Simulated assay, not measured.
Amino acid sequence: MTMTRRTAAEFLGTFWLVFGGCGSAVLAAAFPQIGIGLLGVALAFGLTVLTMAYSVGHISGCHLNPAVTVGVWAGGRFPAKDILPYVVAQVVGAFAAALVLYVVAIGKADYSLAVSGLAANGYAAHSPGQYGMASGLLIEVVLTFFFVLIILGSTDRRAPAGFAPLAIGLALTLIHLISIPVTNTSVNPARSTGPALVVGGWALQQLWLFWVAPILGGVLGGFAYRAVAEEVSEKPAITGEAKPST
């Protein structure tokens, strides 16, 4: 696939992730009587990744996330020269989705961006559960670490074929179930940047955390999987032929 097609797939996939995930939080989570709540929002984020993994995974790898792109590089599965085009496509896709979501949201007479937000990520006063910066930083590092670990493991050629999207989608659902109360869940700098650019103010001031923590977690996850799972060639004493260690 050409880089143009791969970045187009990343743009579309990240648009779907932000529009579907953040859209469920903004439009449906607190809807009177039939709101989907935290569980519904967590499931929505997982479903966006699952559906896109089957749709564009064979085109771009379906990263949809700068932390995943950098983590896959750290895991030895992605060239450094392709990181920047992927990240740009992901951020632009997230911003486009946030803009479209905002246009939809203001169609409701009592919607206020200042009050209702746009599912932006935050800590301290802007954390859903009023968790501080240290809690937000730690949980974003830890959860992104395991997210990248799961991605690398489920897409390993030695893993059962065809099930990676399910594992990745369910992992993202679980991640949201854990951390929506803490930071509104990022583990994805692009997902955080899109809404923050529309909301402005505090969301932009706190955006640094949602780049630093996921990128750090992604890199650590990539290195960890590589250290644990990488095959090592050995030279048997009798045949002299290399074979993978078990």
Rank of each mutant, 00 (worst) to 15 (best):
I215V: 14
Y225E: 03
A9H: 06
V72Q: 00
G20E: 04
I151S: 03
S112R: 03
A124Y: 10
T246W: 13
A171C: 15
P181M: 12
T7Q: 01
S116H: 06
N184A: 13
A114V: 14
G222K: 00
L166Q: 06
E10L: 04
A224G: 10
S233E: 12
P160T: 15
L137T: 04
F145T: 03
S60R: 06
W208S: 07
G40P: 07
L84C: 09
L166V: 15
V232Y: 08
S245R: 15
E231Q: 09
G13Y: 12
F163R: 12
A196W: 01
F78L: 13
S154K: 07
A105V: 11
E140N: 05
L38G: 00
N188A: 01
G40R: 09
P189T: 01
V49M: 10
W73G: 01
S154Y: 08
Y111L: 08
V187S: 01
A203T: 03
E241F: 14
G117T: 03
V228L: 15
A89R: 02
Y86A: 03
V100C: 13
G61M: 11
F147K: 00
L209A: 08
W73Q: 02
I180V: 15
S233D: 08
G221F: 04
A67M: 00
F31Q: 11
P236V: 05
G200E: 11
I215R: 02
A30P: 02
L99G: 13
L47F: 13
A53C: 11
T48C: 15
L138S: 10
A44F: 07
M3R: 11
I59W: 05
A67G: 11
V232C: 03
A80Y: 13
N121D: 11
G37Q: 05
C22K: 02
D110H: 12
F11K: 02
V212W: 09
G46Y: 02
G221Q: 10
L197P: 10
A242M: 05
S186N: 12
V100M: 03
I36C: 05
I59Q: 04
F145P: 02
A119T: 12
P181T: 14
V92I: 15
D110R: 12
S112I: 02
A237V: 14
A29W: 03
A164G: 05
A229T: 08
T51N: 09
P160K: 15
A134G: 09
L27S: 12
K243E: 13
A159M: 12
C22W: 01
F95L: 12
F31G: 07
G217M: 01
L207P: 01
L99Q: 01
P244W: 11
I215T: 02
L138V: 15
I215M: 04
E10W: 01
P181N: 08
T155S: 09
G13S: 10
P32R: 01
P236F: 00
M133H: 14
W211Y: 14
Y123T: 13
T173P: 04
V70T: 10
S135H: 14
G122P: 00
G21M: 07
L39A: 15
A124P: 03
S135Q: 14
G117I: 06
A159N: 14
R191W: 04
N184S: 14
A9C: 12
P85R: 04
F223N: 05
G117F: 05
V115C: 06
R226F: 03
G200Y: 06
V68Q: 07
V92D: 06
G13T: 09
L50T: 01
T183W: 11
R226K: 08
Q130Y: 02
C62D: 06
G221P: 04
P85S: 13
I36W: 04
